[in-house]
């Protein structure tokens, strides 16, 4: 019974996160300016991280936790460097 509840819930959560990723991609393609695209990319990174967390719950494996942490780190670094590029025109001064 509890396994059924968890499986159905994780399925719903993954569907919601997949829809959220689609909305992020829509904003990233449509976005009028560069900062909108960067913001959408940041949100897409977060949604992908949560998606992998939900996938880890579904498979019952603890390996996906490390992948999720890695995606969070890469999302932070990429968004900061892109924002710095918008500000200055170059990343490393």
């Amino acid at each position: 019974m509890s396994a059924l509840i968890i499986i159905i819930t994780v399925w719903i959560a993954q569907s919601a996160l997949a829809l959220a990723m689609c909305l992020c991609v829509y904003r990233m393609v449509r976005g009028p300016r560069a900062q909108d695209r960067i913001l959408a990319l940041d949100a897409l990174y977060v949604c992908g991280m949560l998606q992998l967390l939900a996938f880890g719950v579904r498979t019952g494996s603890t390996v996906y936790f490390e992948v999720s942490l890695l995606i969070g780190t890469l999302g932070f670094v990429s968004t900061v460097s892109l924002a710095k590029f918008l500000m200055r025109g170059e990343v490393i001064e």
Binding site: V10, A13, L17, C47
Partner: peptide, 27 residues
């Protein structure tokens, strides 16, 4: 997994995923 833990954890999973969806909808 005991039933109460499954229901509690599932509620938190649904809350997190739903709030992420609402946030990107606002985006």
């Amino acid at each position: 997994v005991p039933l109460w833990a499954a229901i509690l954890g599932s509620a938190f999973l649904l809350l997190g995923a739903g709030l992420s969806l609402i946030g990107t909808f606002g985006l």
